[in-house]
Design a protein around this nucleic acid. Structure first.
Lengths: 225, 225
DNA sequence: AACAAAATGGGGTAACGGACCCATTCGGGT
DNA sequence: ACCCGAATGGGTCCGTTACCCCATTTTGTT
């Protein structure tokens, strides 16, 4: 549901230019909370909001903000796709990710992608403002809680495309013979992929695979803020 | 992390009494967003905030609000426990649940518990205000999206305590022999519980059980907003 | 062209789980 | 005292999975 409403403030006609900020999150409550926290800082101006990934890209191109606060999980375009696209069009824009996910692997992938900031939604106002100031000054800022979680991120072998495919079908409850039939490969091959999946992720059961998939946001129907 | 900060406004000394509102959510951004949306309504006053379940109960007793906006998942006390406790001490207080979970079963359990309002965090400001007005006027209000999800809630046979226990151990990756050993029952009994679990939940695999457990918030390590 | 990783697939064994049948005991409610 | 649901447990058969061994082919990179 798109409820974003653009509020364009007039440019500062004298003195230093304002810092222009775009807030992208699919929940209006969160956008409003972030907006409120930022409004208290002199010189910062929330120039727009977006409620989904496609709108985020459009607004970024249109408004050319200095800083984008980006939810990691929005409808219509995954956060990482939004990030790549806005960086393509606006290479100098600073992007701070604000996410409710606490998965080490997911947070690590944002860091690897090169975002300038990474916050959890549990971040308090002071830390958010302080972090954004550092980012605008050119630093990279990872919040304390995000940093703790990242410490626990184990360095894993990446999954191959076929392994991801098999994992996806396992999470949907399919048996090895069923997966074999649908992928037009033999049961033995599915067993082989399944075995290497479990070895790479260091799990020994379907529930372990499910927990991994859940944390990595690979399950479609589990929507959340 | 407790970051709640009490902001006690003075009572209105003339005219109609204000509606006193307490906001309970473990994320400061959400509390601030909700506060902002409510501040726009004349006659409403946010008298306090709480960042976890225990604090929520304490503040409710202390401040005696007319209305509590309650996150379903906070640290230290489950939302349903907070709800029961504040109703025990303040039977006339109105409680509106604001949750990020979209599980039909979970939403249904809130309705069954008797809450006066049920909103998802995707609710927009207008719907939240309209709903709270209706609640304060004595109605029960379920948001449009929550109502849609509730339509899909299937009427299920409740799980027995033993079934829940077995489910919990399955979600942690245990095999039937392992569960039997830990619960000091036979493998046959575990098989029997497992079979009835799967029949009641209409699933045929561990992944189906995991999805159910996930939706019902039975998995500990999957924290979210 | 050479190389390495990925993907593919077979044989065999042991363990696990599903599903059906059978059964008794316990505890709570009437 | 009676009844019913929950919990308990056994036998049997069959399908599935994990894991070890073996192997060839394909694909992408250098």
């Amino acid at each position: 549901m798109l409820n974003a409403d653009i509020t364009t403030l007039s440019r500062v006609e004298h003195g230093l230019p304002e810092t222009r900020i775009l807030i992208c999150d699919d929940h209006e409550i969160v956008r409003q909370g972030v907006r409120e926290q930022l409004n208290e800082v002199e010189g910062w101006s929330v120039v727009g909001e977006a409620g989904d990934g496609v709108e985020a890209i459009g607004r970024a191109k249109q408004l050319k903000p200095d800083l984008i606060i980006l939810d990691a999980a929005m409808p219509y375009a995954r956060g990482i796709e939004v990030y790549a696209e806005v960086k393509r069009w606006l290479p100098d824009v600073k992007v701070a990710v604000l996410t409710g996910f606490t998965s080490p692997q997911l947070l690590a992938s944002w860091v690897d992608a090169g975002v300038e900031g990474l916050f959890l939604k549990s971040t308090n106002a002071a830390e958010l403002r302080q972090g954004l100031e550092a980012i605008l000054a050119g630093a990279r800022f990872i919040s304390v809680e995000a940093a703790k979680i990242l410490e626990n991120a184990t360095q894993r072998q990446p999954l191959t495309a076929r392994e991801r495919e098999v994992l996806s079908m396992i999470t949907k409850g399919n048996t090895n013979p069923e997966i074999a039939e649908r992928l037009h490969i033999s049961v033995k091959t599915v067993e082989k992929h399944r075995g290497s999946l479990m070895a790479k992720l260091d799990v020994r059961s379907v529930s372990g695979l499910m927990i991994y998939a859940m944390r990595e946001g690979l399950l479609d129907e589990f929507r959340q803020l």
